[in-house]
């Protein structure tokens, strides 16, 4: 628990903040410019969001691949799997329905 490790940890927060800020700025800029086609901007937004979420988990919520974090990591991954099934499934089912109700 020296000041040395303290500096290192502070640096991690700064890195995380910088990465997150960049990953926020890019999609905002893409949308603000208004020149990027819709499907491209959609992918940019999705990709940046995914990356940024990972950055937050890594640098702010301290989830990583170390042994002590194994349990938390498994929990988060499992939750994300279920989230994908449930949210993705809902969107699929309802999109399917509305497609079939189109005249």
């Amino acid at each position: 628990m020296t000041l040395e490790t303290g500096r290192k940890e502070l640096r991690l927060y700064v890195i995380g903040f910088a990465l997150a800020a960049t990953l926020t700025a890019v999609p905002f800029a893409v949308v603000a410019s208004g020149t990027v086609p819709r499907d491209v901007s959609g992918w940019v937004i999705a990709l940046c969001a995914l990356l940024q979420a990972m950055v937050h988990f890594r640098y702010f919520l301290h989830i990583d691949f170390s042994r002590q974090k194994r349990e938390d990591l498994q929990l988060v991954l499992f939750s994300v799997l279920l989230l994908a099934i449930m949210a993705g499934g809902t969107i699929w089912v309802l999109a399917n329905l509305s497609a079939r109700m189109m005249p």
Binding site: L82, I85, G89
Partner: peptide
């Protein structure tokens, strides 16, 4: 058990 819920409303008219 999280992957089967639609079987309760097959008759909704999904594809």
């Amino acid at each position: 058990s999280f992957t089967v819920w639609v079987h309760h409303f097959f008759t909704m008219g999904g594809s």
